[in-house]
Design a protein around this nucleic acid. Structure first.
Lengths: 138, 138
DNA sequence: TATTGTTATACTCTATAACTATA
DNA sequence: TATAGTTATAGAGTATAACAATA
């Protein structure tokens, strides 16, 4: 396609992220999860002290936008709320949520393995450190 | 923040892409461009034969979604349409568009340099090849 | 005073279907 | 028959402001 922007790392980064996320979305669709849903289930895991605000902070999602997100996952029966104190509530997995988390884990683990396998061996071990430098700083 | 998903390449890829694109958007805001606007101006360059459909194909944007995108850039006086035949029209830069393209080029070139500089030297030369393998295949 | 959870709202980005006109 | 350009629309994702209740 002769893309004159292909040599730009920021551009290639966005294209690679878009392509891989679209593929992961496809693989999660059969179990009824979006990418962000699977991320939330994996993040919660067996913790019983994680709040909506904290999930939002981890994923850089505004508190306000967590409301419909968690509501949808809750309506699917995958999470429940457990009061911590008068104003905070833990978000925890239901049994169905834990089962779904395991499915999501299988799919994403396989997907991440395949992603790495696509990177030529000479570059493979450099990908994650390079991405972390761009995302989280040095 | 102790992110249990940080070791996943796909997750790190998305986070790195989001962070860098947000930063580029900030840098382009002073000259009134979005990231996609700058990409379009850079892609057109001095070509006089590129169509809306072709830009869409290059960037994986649906034809239908190119309409409001180009309309906005056209309303800003940066591009014009030149008929190729009865059904196709070239999208070309106006003089103002060419001036804006130069500004965008300066900003993005500097930004891309800085991005690479953030990657530790040992990993730097591996980033682009690794991203290309994920995006465009082997 | 700061934080949690929430409502409401608006804007961007993306996906799909359908239509007209031309190659 | 395939492609270009367009309209309309719906679904996501994201950002901001505001509010009540609690720490």
């Amino acid at each position: 396609m002769d893309d004159p922007l292909a040599h730009l790392p920021g551009y290639a980064l966005r294209r690679a992220a878009n392509a891989t996320m679209a593929e992961l979305a496809e693989r999660l669709q059969p179990i009824g999860l979006r990418v962000i849903d699977a991320s939330v289930l994996l993040l919660i895991g067996n913790r019983r002290d994680i709040t909506s605000s904290r999930i939002g902070r981890m994923f850089d999602i505004q508190r306000a936008n967590m409301v419909p997100l968690l509501a949808r996952i809750e309506d699917a029966g995958l999470i429940a709320r457990v009061p911590i104190d008068g104003k905070s509530q833990a978000v925890v997995l239901t049994p169905a949520g834990e089962a779904k988390r395991k499915e999501a884990e299988t799919i994403t683990a396989r997907f991440e393995d395949e992603l790495l396998a696509r990177v030529p061996p000479a570059h493979r071990d450099h990908l994650l450190p390079a991405l972390h430098a761009l995302w989280r700083g040095p």
